[in-house]
Design a protein around this nucleic acid. Structure first.
Length: 252
DNA sequence: CGACTTTGACCGGCGC
DNA sequence: GCGCCGGTCAAAGTCG
């Protein structure tokens, strides 16, 4: 066991820890957005109940092929672009009656003949949330081009500068877009690192010497490796990473 | 100059 | 049948 080997091992473990930390944050954001979605669905339901004559889009109605995605964006950003790993061409925009924000219409053009369309519109209640409605099913896989790869990279690198975006995959989509999150930490985020494992706090803030740090890392790694949940999560992350680096070749 | 976006016109479905 | 509304088309505009 050479010091170099130890150092390398520590670096690898640190990278894995960082990856898991990001995944944890991603799950937290997903939960937050799910909560928002539930509230909006509940409000839509109440509105429809109180006014049956009003035409209202009910997302994910049973048997419907459409599915909705809620994406948190910067309200100042007027573009209705939802990065979900597919390539879309905008073919129209309309202001609808029930929402002053314009609705944009997109077609998937990653593959010829792909029937998938999506509508993108800002939420009435919360302008920072963009609602993307997907219709149809992709007849191709997510692109393996650089753009596609950058969309797929979720753990190995921080993606998407600017606002956070959390596109939820359409439930009936055979090739659901990857969960994409902006994991770059803004200043406030950095200040809010309360949910860091205590070890990470210690490691980043303490003035311990190298030996103490190393000891703490080893302790923490030992406790993690005993945790079956951690093992499972790590296996999933590694599998996902491999899948991302070697995307399935698209059929000719 | 090609790719992409914008925007007004047009079309079809639906309710009255 | 008429008008409203959402969805689509295609020409014009914009940008790199």
């Amino acid at each position: 066991m050479s010091p170099d080997y130890d150092k390398e091992k520590v670096e690898v473990l640190e990278a894995e820890l960082e990856c898991l930390q990001k995944e944890n944050e991603a799950l937290g954001l997903m939960f937050e957005t799910m909560s928002r979605k539930y509230i909006m669905l509940h409000q839509a339901y109440l509105r429809q109940k109180s006014n049956k004559r009003q035409r209202l889009e009910v997302p994910d109605a049973a048997g419907s092929k459409a599915s909705q995605v809620f994406v948190k964006t910067d309200p100042r950003d007027q573009s209705l672009i939802v990065k979900d790993g597919f390539q879309w061409i905008k073919y129209g925009q309309k202001v609808t009656k029930d929402n002053p924000s314009p609705r944009a219409y997109f077609k998937c053009f990653m593959a010829p003949g792909c029937p998938v369309k999506k509508k993108v519109q800002r939420c009435v209640e919360d302008k920072s949330i963009v609602v993307a409605t997907y219709e149809g099913q992709h007849n191709h896989d997510v692109d393996s081009t650089a753009a596609g790869k950058s969309m797929l990279a979720s753990c190995s690198s921080a993606i998407f500068s600017g606002s956070r975006s959390i596109p939820f995959p359409p439930l009936d989509n055979p090739f659901p877009p990857p969960i994409t999150l902006d994991l770059t930490l803004s200043g406030s985020d950095l200040q809010n690192h309360r949910n860091l494992p205590s070890f990470m706090h210690d490691y980043s803030t303490s003035n311990d010497d190298g030996n103490n740090k190393k000891k703490k890392i080893e302790d923490y790694v030992a406790s993690l490796t005993k945790d079956p949940n951690f093992t499972l999560a790590l296996a999933a992350a590694v599998a996902r990473s491999i899948k991302t680096e070697h995307p399935k070749p698209s059929p000719p």
